[in-house]
Computed example of a mutant assay.
Amino acid sequence: MLPPLIPPFRYAIVEGEVYRGAYPKSRNLRFLKRLHLKTILSLCPNPPAGDLVDFCKEYNIKNITLQVNKVKDNVPLSYSKAIQAIQIIIDPENQPIYVHCLDGANVTGLVIACLRKLQMWSVPSAMGEFLRFLRGGVISSEENEFVEKFSAEIEIPCTIPTWLWGGRVDFVKHPTLKLKFLDPGIVQKTTKKPVGGVGEGDRDLLGNLLEPPANVTTEYREVDVIEEEEPEAVSMTVLALALEGLKD
């Protein structure tokens, strides 16, 4: 009989092929195997060891460790580490990816909250999700301020995952972050519409609809017309004789 599938503590799906949770224990590895992971991102004071390292080697999983020191001023994460983590997460080459800290709460939660800002979530929405994974159910003012003031420059990969802005860039400027596109060609030019008016793109469309098409040749095909023959005139005398015959 196979052992049960046990997910890591505080396991959850963030987006598509992005997962989060606590440090995986031996009993969680069979569950993680089913995710077909390419990367495990460890946000811990020390690199992983033991069964987790062997698991990564056996299944050719890339293990990236960002050293996160103990809690300082109630914020266990620096902005530089948050930026590094986000850029690792949004790179499709690293997905499917499992992101974890020791307990799957504060450190992982702050990284995901900053990721949500990149996705254009509001801070209250991001912190509402953050709160769901806290053991005490209380967000410190320092943690809330950390997410509010997160306004770094993020490098956007040449291929954008579909869960990030629908996989395309159709906005002029990000509301809170500075973005650096490794492939500037993925930025789609957008035309702003004046309030109460018609944008340039709409004018072009209307022009195409209203203007008569050029160089259109109308063909007229000859159709054979069959003229019906008029019935021959019947002599009134012949008709009268026929009626007389009927009376007899």
Rank of each mutant, 00 (worst) to 15 (best):
residue 13 I to W: 02
residue 225 V to L: 13
residue 27 R to S: 07
residue 128 G to A: 12
residue 149 K to R: 15
residue 17 E to Q: 14
residue 206 L to V: 14
residue 183 D to H: 01
residue 186 I to P: 09
residue 29 L to I: 11
residue 63 N to I: 11
residue 41 L to C: 03
residue 177 L to S: 02
residue 72 K to C: 12
residue 6 I to H: 07
residue 140 S to R: 14
residue 199 G to Y: 02
residue 109 G to F: 13
residue 135 R to M: 06
residue 44 C to L: 14
residue 203 R to E: 04
residue 121 W to F: 15
residue 79 Y to D: 14
residue 99 V to G: 06
residue 222 E to D: 02
residue 50 G to R: 12
residue 95 Q to K: 13
residue 145 E to L: 14
residue 169 V to A: 11
residue 1 M to V: 08
residue 218 T to D: 02
residue 157 P to N: 12
residue 17 E to N: 15
residue 155 E to V: 12
residue 221 R to I: 07
residue 63 N to P: 00
residue 218 T to C: 05
residue 6 I to P: 05
residue 150 F to E: 09
residue 212 P to Q: 00
residue 175 P to E: 05
residue 118 L to S: 14
residue 189 K to W: 00
residue 184 P to D: 10
residue 37 L to C: 01
residue 74 N to G: 05
residue 125 S to Q: 15
residue 117 K to E: 05
residue 57 K to I: 05
residue 171 F to N: 08
residue 61 I to C: 07
residue 39 T to L: 00
residue 144 N to V: 14
residue 11 Y to E: 06
residue 173 K to E: 15
residue 236 M to P: 05
residue 217 T to Y: 06
residue 95 Q to D: 04
residue 50 G to Y: 08
residue 219 E to Y: 10
residue 221 R to G: 00
residue 71 V to G: 00
residue 32 L to G: 08
residue 248 D to K: 15
residue 239 L to E: 13
residue 45 P to H: 05
residue 12 A to N: 13
residue 63 N to V: 04
residue 108 T to F: 06
residue 93 E to M: 04
residue 55 F to R: 09
residue 205 L to F: 12
residue 190 T to L: 02
residue 173 K to S: 12
residue 187 V to S: 03
residue 198 V to N: 02
residue 73 D to H: 13
residue 110 L to W: 13
residue 171 F to P: 10
residue 120 M to H: 07
residue 96 P to D: 01
residue 233 A to I: 11
residue 147 V to A: 08
residue 99 V to Q: 04
residue 200 E to N: 11
residue 108 T to V: 11
residue 199 G to A: 12
residue 182 L to G: 01
residue 226 I to A: 04
residue 186 I to Q: 13
residue 107 V to P: 14
residue 93 E to K: 15
residue 228 E to C: 06
residue 171 F to L: 08
residue 123 V to M: 14
residue 201 G to V: 03
residue 28 N to Y: 09
residue 5 L to C: 03
residue 163 W to Y: 15
residue 183 D to F: 00
residue 125 S to Y: 11
residue 115 L to D: 11
residue 47 P to W: 03
residue 150 F to R: 08
residue 150 F to A: 04
residue 144 N to M: 14
residue 189 K to P: 00
residue 219 E to Q: 08
residue 173 K to Y: 10
residue 209 L to T: 02
residue 49 A to F: 11
residue 38 K to W: 01
residue 146 F to D: 08
residue 77 L to V: 05
residue 232 E to Q: 13
residue 61 I to T: 09
residue 193 K to W: 00
residue 49 A to I: 11
residue 51 D to R: 03
residue 68 V to N: 03
residue 54 D to L: 13
residue 174 H to L: 09
residue 8 P to F: 06
residue 50 G to H: 10
residue 172 V to D: 07
residue 68 V to F: 03
residue 50 G to K: 10
residue 193 K to H: 03
residue 167 G to Y: 08
residue 27 R to P: 00
residue 95 Q to Y: 06
residue 242 A to V: 14
residue 8 P to I: 03
residue 31 F to G: 03
residue 227 E to V: 05
residue 43 L to I: 07
residue 153 E to T: 15
residue 92 P to W: 00
residue 132 R to Y: 02
residue 23 Y to M: 11
residue 220 Y to E: 10
residue 154 I to A: 07
residue 88 I to W: 01
residue 152 A to W: 01
residue 60 N to P: 01
residue 53 V to H: 04
residue 192 K to G: 05
residue 61 I to W: 09
residue 159 T to Y: 02
residue 115 L to S: 10
residue 92 P to D: 05
residue 118 L to Y: 14
residue 226 I to T: 09
residue 83 I to T: 15
residue 213 P to K: 14
residue 177 L to M: 04
residue 203 R to N: 02
